[in-house]
Amino acid sequence: MPSIELRNVNNFACRDINMTVADGELLVLLGPTGAGKTTLLNIISGLIEYEGSVLFDGSPTEGTPTNRRGVGYLFQDLVLFPHLTVSSNITYGLRMQKWGLEAIDARLRELMDSMNIHHLAGRYPRDLSGGEKQRVALARAIAPYPKVLLLDEPFNNLDMRTTKYLRIEFRKILKELGLTAIFVTHSLKEAQEMADRIAVLDRGRLEQIGSPREIFFDPHGEGVSDFLGSPNILECDGYHVLGNGLVAAECNGMEIIVPYEGNSVRKIAISPGDVYLSRNRPPGPHLNRFQGVISKAIPRGSVMRFTVRIGNREIDAELPRDIAEAQDLREGMEAFIILKLRCLRIL
């Protein structure tokens, strides 16, 4: 599979984009709504005008129309053709590229096996569930062996459980096929779970590109920090190894149990979204559980950001707004937090 390279790419929504996606890499384009993520995918696929250059394996693609670029594209709304059955949808690209009948049959069987969608062959898109539509759309996009695969927030309209399952399944399929892919999302969690590397896009500019760990713990610039939500960084005074892959770190009077990989422990980080917050004392042992007072409660889009003061230290926690409202969490109220063990990182 080829690499993708963007050189000085500009258009109405993108400014001076320079980046490379390595052969077989899964790069996640992360950014808020209106950041230019979909526009960038449309540029790579040649669907819209742009200045600069897009290269597949070092060769410029300018002058090659979309239908000959060899790009697989999974659209946000999936856009399965409503008048075609699942089989015809999947084989559409093969027929357009004039494959032989036997080759089409063989490829269809192979894809239906790997996606486990044999039973859907004769159905029309209107009769499919959300998850089934995703699988069919992916099968259609990868059927003609595209050079690169572009996925535009394909899990947007699905429930959380299906999304989580499909994220794992899609990543597995993409890695098995060794496809060079760009996956667009506005969800940090989705980006962390899917990405080999993450590129953060904001107002048409590429703000940062790096491993999920780099992006998460070392966000560059205010735009990225604002969007990602800065993690809680806890300075450690000392630590002792517990065994079983765990370490107990002393951070300003708080003893925190953290997964341990053998390095020295100076700082610990955890995302506000991974801090459990409740007004009731949580059941279970006292490990990684702390009591404090909510000093700030600020709404941020679909979530509420709380700052909880514990002694002389402040910890940020984020909850979906509906959950925060159901608990009636307010400033000045006593609250309990849990730092989720597997979400704590040693820096």
Partner: peptide, 29 residues
């Protein structure tokens, strides 16, 4: 007919005339 269908057909390798015959006309039928 949603322009997204045209985009999807293009990325799958369809020429303009085939997009017309295989996507636009059947959906507009």
């Amino acid at each position: 007919v949603s322009r997204d269908f045209i985009k999807a057909a293009k990325t799958l390798g369809a020429s303009d005339i085939r997009i017309l015959m295989t996507v636009l006309l059947p959906i507009a039928l």
